[in-house]
Simulated scan of single mutants.
Amino acid sequence: MKKYIASLIILFGIIVLLIINYRTPFFQQDGGGWSVGYGESNTYPENINVKENQVYSIESLKKQNDSTVFLADPFFVKEKDTFYLFFEHKKTKNNGDIGLMTSVDGKKYQYRGTVLTQKFHLSYPQVFKYKNNFYMIPESKQANAILLYKAHHFPFDWKVCDTLLKNVRLKDPSIYLSDSLNILATSDDKLNLYIYQADSLFGKWKLHKKTIALRGTEARPGGRFFADKKGLILPVQNCTNGYGCGLSLYRFSFKDGSYSTARIAPFFLKGNKDIKEFSAGMHQLDVQRIDNNKYYYVYDGNRLNSDSKKLNIYGPLKWTYVDLKNWILNR
């Protein structure tokens, strides 16, 4: 009897390990530094062929700033005839800063330097125009708050003008503002994606009554909300093969004070072995309509350091536990 029970336990353990290894492999690829890519299309981008687009690589930025470790989390705004591309600029032994590149044609970019630096780490610089002023909501998790910055001499001279959320350690806040809907999507370290709402940008931001939108290995924003003919879409990071391996698209449908979510494009962006800079994975996307007949988009990705893989035990165990818990809670 004891041997039978022991055999069942071993069999159960093997099954669990196989599930874990399928969902999030123990052996994960050896990813390196990040780069930025960009492109355009005359119609809404149902898919993006990154092989046809241009890349601003680590090497390109190193020529301008030799302390560069990577550039990631790109967001852009187009003002008049200029593209302003803001990004997380990680430099040797420093916290992340917010860097800037500009272009007059959306094809050739010039590095313009650092536009925002703090004593804490900054990333994910979502920049947007609101009532004729430019604002930025970067990730400021280490400040225990979600901070709102205003440009006093755009694209430079950014200063904190408001604190949207206090005493929180949240990642990658993505905001959407309109006359009828104002929401903020952001995630915590426990793989939960929360939705906040307010009556305006400067209103009081509160958790939505349906607090958590997504849980598990796809529960971290990966770019700006954008709209197609059917409504709102949020890029969401996919971490099943480790951090930064891919990006999926989720539709958010708000109605009668609540909302629903649907995964509409699994791995919309993912690693491509044919592109050195994005051979390991991709995790950020910003799509905007820049005129009546054209869309422009920026994204990032990282490269493989080698063909070897690293052993990662903690990640698969953690993510599988979270996914299993969420499956039980949502039944």
Score class of each variant (00 low, 15 high):
N167V: 04
R169Y: 11
L170V: 02
L170I: 05
L170Q: 08
L170F: 07
L170M: 11
L170C: 04
D172G: 03
P173H: 07
S174R: 00
S174I: 06
S174T: 08
I175R: 01
Y176Q: 03
L177M: 14
L177Y: 01
L177E: 04
S178P: 00
S178I: 00
S178H: 01
D179Y: 06
L181R: 00
L181W: 09
L181D: 03
N182P: 03
I183T: 01
I183H: 03
L184S: 08
A185F: 00
T186D: 14
S187P: 15
D188I: 13
D189I: 14
D189P: 09
K190L: 10
K190W: 07
N192C: 10
L193R: 05
L193W: 05
L193F: 10
Y194Q: 09
I195Q: 08
Y196S: 05
Q197G: 11
Q197S: 15
Q197M: 11
Q197K: 15
A198V: 12
S200N: 02
L201N: 02
F202S: 04
F202Q: 02
W205R: 10
W205T: 07
W205D: 02
W205Q: 09
K206N: 12
K206R: 11
K206W: 01
K210P: 11
K210H: 13
K210Q: 15
K210I: 13
T211Y: 06
I212K: 12
I212M: 06
L214Y: 08
L214P: 09
L214A: 14
L214T: 08
L214K: 10
L214C: 14
R215I: 15
G216A: 10
G216C: 11
G216Q: 09
T217S: 13
T217Q: 06
E218F: 10
A219T: 06
R220F: 02
P221Q: 06
P221C: 12
G222D: 00
G223N: 09
R224K: 15
R224Y: 10
R224W: 05
R224E: 12
R224M: 08
R224G: 03
F225C: 05
F225P: 04
F225A: 04
F226K: 03
F226T: 04
F226V: 02
D228Y: 00
D228H: 03
K229R: 12
K229C: 02
K230L: 12
K230H: 11
G231R: 10
G231P: 00
G231D: 05
I233E: 02
P235N: 11
P235A: 12
V236N: 07
V236T: 12
Q237Y: 05
Q237V: 04
Q237K: 09
N238T: 13
N238Q: 10
C239V: 14
C239W: 14
T240K: 09
G242T: 13
Y243D: 03
Y243G: 10
G244C: 12
G244N: 10
G244Y: 08
G244S: 10
C245N: 15
C245T: 09
S248C: 12
Y250V: 10
Y250R: 07
Y250F: 15
R251E: 04
F252S: 11
F252C: 08
S253M: 09
S253V: 07
F254P: 10
F254G: 08
K255N: 15
K255I: 06
D256F: 01
G257T: 08
G257Q: 01
Y259R: 06
Y259I: 04
S260C: 13
T261R: 13
A262S: 15
A262V: 14
A262Q: 15
I264D: 00
